[in-house]
Amino acid sequence: MSRALLSKRLDHLERHGLIVRSEGRYLPTPACEELRPMLFGLAEWGARWAFGEPRPDELDPVVLMWWICGGIDPAPFGGRRVVVHVRVPDARRTRFWFVVEPHDVSLCFTDPGYEVDATIESPLGVLYQVWEGMLELLAAARDGRLTLTGRREVLVRLPASLRLSPVTPYVRRGRAGLPA
């Protein structure tokens, strides 16, 4: 999504009382929070009835990396900087870096110049499945679907730092055909 389109959509949501801008961030209003059960209910319904696996042309590595960046919790790394290099050989953009600081996570599209602590190499579709919660990161590595290399103390903390998509529990339940 272009910055212009994102700005237009955020402005629209703000004008209609669904988000407020505070200290450089957008936060949901109570009206927005009341929509949460309906939106996640639609996600569950879609997983059960409407949507299959995404087609390769629907997978966008940049969007996925922004989502992952927003879900990284720095706390498991104990207050030190950690750099995670992600290589996606089958994507149009193949290299990304997450610089995880104690109170901030940055997504870099060029090498940030710090020593890399961990590397994830994975096909784009596998990373999407990890993000959606369909695959566990370490299980995907054990099965050879992706490769994890780097410092052991970082690799053991990596799964705890990666918070999954907020729709993961709903999608899992929808795919399992379980009632709400």
Score class of each variant (00 low, 15 high):
Glu34Leu: 11
Arg81His: 04
Thr29Pro: 10
Gly79Gln: 09
Val105Tyr: 05
Trp66Ala: 04
Val99Gly: 12
Gly41Arg: 09
Ala47His: 01
Arg87Asn: 02
Leu39Lys: 04
Pro76Asp: 08
Arg87Tyr: 00
Val99Cys: 08
Leu27Cys: 08
Phe40Ala: 02
Gly79Thr: 10
Val62Met: 03
His16Trp: 07
Glu53Lys: 08
Arg55Trp: 02
Leu35Ala: 11
Val84Gln: 07
Glu33Pro: 03
Arg55Leu: 11
Val63Gly: 09
Phe40Trp: 08
Ala75Phe: 07
Val63Ala: 13
Pro37Glu: 10
Arg95Asn: 14
Phe98Trp: 13
Pro56Gly: 05
Arg25Thr: 02
Gly24Trp: 00
Arg25Glu: 13
Pro54Ser: 10
Gly71Val: 00
Glu44Cys: 09
Arg48Asn: 06
Arg92Phe: 01
Val83Pro: 02
Val100Gln: 08
His85Thr: 01
Ile72Tyr: 06
Val84Phe: 02
Trp97Lys: 01
Phe40Pro: 01
Ala43Tyr: 07
Ala31Gly: 13
Val88Gln: 12
Ser22Trp: 05
His85Tyr: 02
Val86Glu: 10
Val86Thr: 14
Glu44Asp: 10
Leu107Gln: 12
Glu23Arg: 14
Arg21Cys: 01
Ile19Asn: 10
Phe51Pro: 00
Gly52Ile: 07
Phe96Lys: 04
Leu39Ser: 07
Ala31Tyr: 12
Pro89Asn: 04
Ser106Asn: 06
Val63Lys: 05
Trp49Gly: 00
Pro54Ile: 04
Val105Glu: 08
Ile19Val: 15
Glu58Asp: 04
Ile72Asp: 09
Pro37Thr: 14
Gly17Ala: 14
Phe51Val: 13
Pro28Arg: 13
Pro102Ala: 03
Pro74Gln: 05
Pro61Thr: 10
Leu18Thr: 05
Pro61Glu: 15
Asp60Thr: 03
Leu27Met: 11
Cys32Ser: 15
Asp104Val: 01
Val88His: 10
Leu13His: 05
Trp49Tyr: 14
Arg95Cys: 01
Val100Arg: 06
Pro102Glu: 03
Pro102Gly: 07
Asp11Ala: 14
Glu101Ser: 08
Pro74Ser: 07
Thr94Cys: 03
Asp60Gly: 03
Asp73Ile: 10
His103Lys: 11
Gly70Met: 03
Arg93Glu: 12
Ala91His: 07
Cys69Gly: 12
Asp73Arg: 15
Pro76Lys: 11
Arg55Cys: 01
Arg93Ile: 05
Glu33Trp: 02
Trp49Arg: 13
Cys69Lys: 13
Ile19Asp: 06
Val100Leu: 06
Pro102Phe: 03
Arg92Thr: 09
Arg92Asp: 09
Arg15Ile: 02
Gly78Val: 07
Pro37Lys: 11
Glu34Lys: 12
Asp73Gln: 14
Trp45Glu: 11
Ser106Ile: 02
Glu34Gln: 13
Leu42Asp: 03
Val83Trp: 04
Pro76Cys: 04
Asp90Met: 07
Asp57Asn: 11
Thr94Phe: 00
Arg81Asp: 13
Ser22Thr: 06
Val84Arg: 08
Gly17Lys: 11
Pro74His: 04
Thr29Met: 05
Arg80Tyr: 01
Asp73Val: 08
Arg15Tyr: 01
Ala50Trp: 01
Arg81Trp: 02
Pro61Ala: 15
Leu27Pro: 07
Pro102Ile: 06
